[in-house]
Design a protein around this nucleic acid. Structure first.
Lengths: 238, 238
DNA sequence: CCAATAGTGTCTGTTAGACATTATAGA
DNA sequence: TCTATAATGTCTAACAGACACTATTGG
């Protein structure tokens, strides 16, 4: 009977018929009153010249975890690390990739538009695409399905959390955040209800600064560390 | 410049250094007033003789999807398919498996104890283990972390859905379901609150049958198809 | 002054918590 | 009748919806 040492020494991953494994990120931001996401135009086969989510394969040398892989891929395209990253779902089947049985571990990430705008502009094959204009883009693989699922999850989160705030700059106003939630939910919210729950939960910190565009200046807030994991017991109306 | 056909013809997955990929299932049930889950005693290296979640590797021939893989693995150990299966999370890093960089796509499944009891009894390396007695078992890999996460998610679901009902037999009583929710949440619930929301949402169907143990007979219900996806807008108190 | 936007006051409606009460079985 | 459990009645508290109101800026 072999011991574990002998077993591991004789073990060779290439003896097995393993599916292809990668990661993909749905990176959302909010800009110009629109929900946008980052797409990459594919330069290689398969699905060459189609648009796809930023993603790629695990590098067993440089990546210690799946999060390392997805952060590395996001950094390649945006130049920065997003403040919010959460695993979405893993898609795996025999048909989603022409190269054969393949798996992608998908993440949802949120980032402010301004913080990665300079780098994105400098990279030719990357673009911020408004979610509502996705139909103008030919997407590779099953990425439309993945994006749709990420969008739906983000909508749900906007009903019981303030996680969408990570798609805004560090300092933001409450009307700004409410607008984002309204875009996500697809209908207007009661200003009073929206502000009340955030105040009562003590989620944000007043920066002391104001921003004036038109009308009365709006207070600028920043998130507290605790606000990422806070969930309201009661959802907003859908 | 090569076309896609040539690219795919030349493509060989074994040219790449790919992580090991498998699936695992946290299969819960409710029996003897306890939340239990299915564990398998490992017969092979690595982590031989430790207990682990039912799971294994994708068989690219027999499995068309990841769900096929996990259902096949659950069937091997229980003889049946669970009525509830949902993806939990994917764990992937360089250290979780001694064989090297590995990924496991994890699922939560629910099933009634009675429907798979006969088969489980007949398989020597499989056991239903009470969640509260997990500390008596030496678990392989990172399976304790996975189980803990699945348990937490199931607790959350008990606050805003009736999904735990899938861990009961097809016909069940409301006090029975409430007991399960109380075990999951870890504190007693108001009988009135619990029943009211289920009635108002019209989630269950009266079978017309009653079950008498001690005291007044309890009405037996069955789930409607819609009840799996129903979520209450307001959570029960935690 | 007005227009525009930020932010508040306050009433209503819904629903969970609390807990007393009634209903139906077996012994 | 008594005990045990199932199921209901009803009051309260919390909080979201609705919408009128006030506050603060620029022109």
């Amino acid at each position: 009977m072999k011991g574990e040492k002998e077993y591991l020494a004789a073990y060779n991953i290439h003896d097995y018929d393993i599916p292809l494994v990668g990661v993909d990120a749905v990176l959302f931001t909010y800009h110009g009153d629109m929900l946008k996401l980052l797409l990459v135009e594919r330069r290689n086969h398969p699905d060459k010249n189609k648009w796809a989510l930023p993603g790629g394969f695990v590098d067993k040398q440089s990546d210690k975890t799946l999060e390392d892989t997805v952060l590395r891929k996001i950094q390649e395209k945006t130049g920065v690390e997003p403040p919010y990253l959460e695993q979405l779902k893993t898609y795996g089947n025999a048909l989603r990739d022409k190269r054969g049985w393949s798996i992608t571990v998908c993440y949802t990430a949120l980032i402010s538009h301004q913080v990665c705008a300079p780098h994105v502009v400098s990279v030719s094959d990357v673009a911020w695409v408004a979610y509502d204009e996705l139909s103008n883009y030919s997407l590779g693989f099953d990425h439309l399905e993945i994006i749709t699922h990420a969008r739906e999850r983000l909508k749900q989160k906007s009903l019981y959390s303030v996680i969408p705030a990570y798609a805004l700059p560090q300092k933001f106003t409450l009307p700004e955040l409410q607008n984002l939630h309204e875009v996500l939910i697809g209908k207007p919210l009661q200003k009073k209800s929206f502000r009340r729950r955030i105040e009562q939960a003590g989620l944000f910190e007043d920066t002391g600064e104001k921003r004036t565009e038109k009308g009365r200046p709006a207070t600028l807030y920043r998130m507290k560390d605790s606000s990422a994991c806070f969930t309201f017991v009661r959802n907003l109306e859908q």
